[in-house]
């Protein structure tokens, strides 16, 4: 998978590169709109991570230009503007998703995977975690052909942890994923723990889940 990161903030671009390289993506970077346009038109990318506030041009113009010239890469717009209008404009112009800054790399990764599933219409849209089968399209979890009744948030939680298995996800990352950008005056709450507790109860009723670990003071991990 080839990814182009168009981001003028070099440190940010660097961190994204490190993370995505670890996830086995081939990363290419551009620090301004012109070089970004050149690269998009010359090379074939699966993903373009596009910052809107580029020094020499508006990221949306780059997107428009690339689409006009037939680029088939999936565009994910990264912006600090965080404005609804930008979101609509970005999606209208052919962006595949939109993530407001600051975003979590885990979140970025899961969005990229969602796009991949959507774009390539993966036949088996399922994941397997130990004895559990997660059907992503139908949003169901089964264990030994038995469907487990999960709430929307419980499903999201399980799916997100599975996507990033063998890695700790902090409460902050999980909260961000489950509640998204909602402005809560309650970020210190233990709602995540409650959801995890309920999820564990439901899962463990069907099979042992000792791989579902709590990392004290940090968060949770599916360790398989």
């Amino acid at each position: 998978m080839n990814v182009l990161i168009v981001e003028d903030e070099r440190s940010l671009s660097h961190e994204m590169e490190i993370y995505l390289t670890r996830q086995n993506f081939n990363c290419d970077v551009a620090f301004n709109g012109k070089s970004g346009t050149d690269k998009v038109l010359t090379n074939s990318y699966d993903f373009v991570l596009l910052d809107l506030g580029l020094p020499d041009m508006d990221g949306l113009d780059l997107l428009k230009d690339a689409r006009k010239k037939g680029s088939e890469a999936a565009f994910i717009v990264l912006t600090a503007r965080g404005e609804v209008e930008d979101k609509i404009k970005g999606l209208d112009l052919g962006a595949d998703d939109y993530i407001p800054k600051p975003f979590s790399l885990a979140e970025l990764h899961s969005r990229m995977q969602a796009i991949l599933r959507r774009k390539h219409g993966l036949k088996s849209n399922t994941m397997t975690v130990a004895d559990f089968d997660i059907d992503i399209s139908n949003r169901t979890v089964q264990c030994k052909a038995q469907t487990i009744n999960l709430t929307k948030k419980e499903f999201d939680l399980f799916h997100y942890l599975s996507l990033h298995k063998n890695r700790v996800l902090t409460r902050t990352q999980l909260t961000e994923h489950i509640w998204g950008d909602v402005l809560e005056d309650d970020y210190e709450s233990n709602y995540i723990d409650v959801h995890v507790k309920n999820l564990r109860k439901k899962l463990s009723a069907h099979a042992p889940i000792d791989w579902f670990e709590t990392v004290r003071g940090v968060g949770y991990r599916i360790n398989i």
């Binding site: 903030e9 440190s11 940010l12 961190e15 600051p102 790399l105 700790v168």
Partner: peptide, 15 residues
């Protein structure tokens, strides 16, 4: 938001 993004992503990578 940009510097926060950088530090946040760096923390994630370190973790």
């Amino acid at each position: 938001q940009t510097p926060i993004s950088i530090v946040q992503n760096r923390l994630e990578n370190i973790m």
